[in-house]
Amino acid sequence: MIPLPTIAFYLLATTTILAGLAVVFARNPVHSVLFLITAFFSGAGLFVLMGAEFLAMLLIVVYVGAVAVLFLFVVMMLDVDFTQLREGFSRYLPIGGAVAGLLTIEMIIVATTVASQGAASGATAPNASGGTDVTNAEAIGRVLYTDYVYFFQAAGLVLLVAMIGAIVLTLRHKPGVKRQNIAAQNARTPATGMTIVDIKPGEGISE
């Protein structure tokens, strides 16, 4: 009898690879993004199998929740002609294939070296569970606001700078833009918002 985790692994791994291929080969870009989300989900499942549930959560929240949705918006809002983008496919196939092949070979070499000899001395992957019965979400929580608070806050400042930059470079104050003024709306009374005009028959209103 095959153990349950093994079945789950092969199921999730196959789904990831198939979804990844579908991202590249799907004709409709919206389908590509949807397959990308599938790939992220099965990747998250693989993380759970490895005992890295925090990473799995992060993958869903960040990649599915933000990045993939952003892709979807870009694909739907921008008028990009994807068939035109694909025209160069056969022309760039040799060089693209060469790069992909090189990367594959490199990955295989690295994986086999590490598998046979291990990384350099002292290089041990941090234990997913922190050595004791601490879950890895808890382990991250213990250092995030203590040892790593400086990096964490600095990363926050980086995001702030990105936001300031986006506003500085794109916000334009246009004169004559009509904005809703709720206080003014609420302050309207029949006396200020309405005039009663006595129209004589056959004359109409003149402004």
Binding site: Y150, F151, A154, A155, L157, V158, V161, A162, I164, G165, V168, L169, T170
Partner: peptide
Amino acid sequence: SLYVGIELSSLALYVLAAFRR
């Protein structure tokens, strides 16, 4: 901290370079 410091300063510098949009 090396990387975060570099990114913080660089990102501000990119915006300053394009300041006259």
